[in-house]
């Protein structure tokens, strides 16, 4: 959520700068915001479900940043093991003496039980978190950037640019996302990067449509004509005037979309595409554990519970953001 608030204030300062330096009257500022905190307060604290979702997401992101940084440090130095030592147990090592232990409160690692290979489920979930968060952030960010470039250009220039870009978008949207992602990631190869590439290729067309729609409605507004009268270049008009003004509803959609990325990412992992064992992955853990149900229910249960909790949190928060931005529930 605070990302959204930060972006808003960034947009505001950007608007202030462009308007101040030009002789045209400033764009009519939206009236419904007073200070940062009350804005934040109105969005979140009025809705308990959204607040709960926000807390879960905050914990998930904070842990992912912490653990992810350690994993990156480890992979660069190749000698340290910070990411594993901070967990207090190795989720990658095989240990058949601890195979299929049921959940118990004896130690932190046994809280969710262990799988056939003796990996602690809880530690595996924690170890896999940064990849899910990374996939969510990277795919949405890249999808948004590509969509912003193509969609805004298409709407602004019109003509054949629009035809080419938007028909391309339609072509990508014709195939269901998951099916296209499967095809692309198989063509690119296995591993985390290929899944990221596949998801980005699948994700941008929605944003291209969004940005085009926004830019179409904005490009004939007074402030754009004013900027053009001042001799502002096309690029500057597009990215300093049109894009910042079109972001609000798209950001709300993006918050909801992180959950969709994580959902697709775990569905791909479930089908065996992406990160390969022994590196743990939520969807992959679920799919492997399914063979051991009902006796070893915890193997699939806890990873799927985590996926469910995080996706629902993003959905609740995004739903609330959309309500607020469309002005449906200003109290």
């Amino acid at each position: 959520m605070n990302r959204h608030w930060l972006l808003r204030s960034a947009i505001r300062s950007l608007r202030g700068k462009t308007d101040g330096s030009s002789p045209v009257p400033p764009t009519p500022a939206p009236t419904r915001r007073s200070s940062g905190f009350s804005h934040f307060n109105r969005i979140l604290f009025k809705d308990r479900a959204a607040l709960g979702g926000f807390i879960v997401i905050l914990a998930f992101l904070a842990w992912s940043i912490f653990e992810g940084t350690l994993q990156i440090i480890d992979s660069i130095t190749r000698r340290t093991d910070y990411a594993i030592s901070v967990l207090g147990g190795n989720p990658l090592a095989l240990d058949f003496s601890h195979s299929l232990l049921s959940p118990s409160t004896n130690s932190f690692g046994l809280l969710f039980g262990t799988d056939y290979y003796g990996h602690s489920i809880l530690l595996s979930i924690l170890y896999a978190a940064p990849r899910d968060a990374g996939a969510g952030v990277l795919v949405v960010a890249m999808g948004m950037t590509i969509g912003m470039l193509l969609g805004t250009c298409a709407a602004y220039f019109g003509g054949w640019t629009e035809t080419v870009f938007m028909r391309l978008t339609d072509a990508f949207l014709a195939v269901p996302a998951l099916v296209l992602a499967i095809a692309v990631s198989i063509m690119v190869g296995t591993g985390f990067t290929s899944v990221l590439i596949a998801l980005i290729i699948v994700w941008w067309p929605t944003y291209a449509r969004f940005f085009r729609g926004q830019a179409l409605s904005l490009k004939n507004r007074g402030f754009v004509s004013a900027a053009r009268l001042c001799g502002t270049g096309s690029l500057s008009i597009m990215f300093r005037h049109i894009v910042p003004n079109s972001l609000d509803p798209i950001i709300a959609y993006a918050a909801l979309d992180f959950g969709n990325v994580i959902l697709s990412y775990s569905a791909l992992a479930f089908l065996g595409i992406g990160v390969q064992p022994p590196i743990p992955e939520w969807g992959e853990m679920t799919s492997e554990g399914l063979g051991y149900i009902p006796a070893t229910w915890w193997w699939s249960f806890f990873p799927s519970l985590v996926i469910l909790a995080i996706v629902i949190s993003f959905t609740l928060l995004g739903d609330r953001l959309q309500d607020v931005i469309s002005g449906r529930s200003i109290s």
Partner: peptide, 13 residues
């Protein structure tokens, strides 16, 4: 919201 956010494999299983 819950059913929408649940992965198909979990519901199916």
């Amino acid at each position: 919201l819950v059913t929408w956010a649940s992965p198909a494999f979990i519901v199916a299983f």
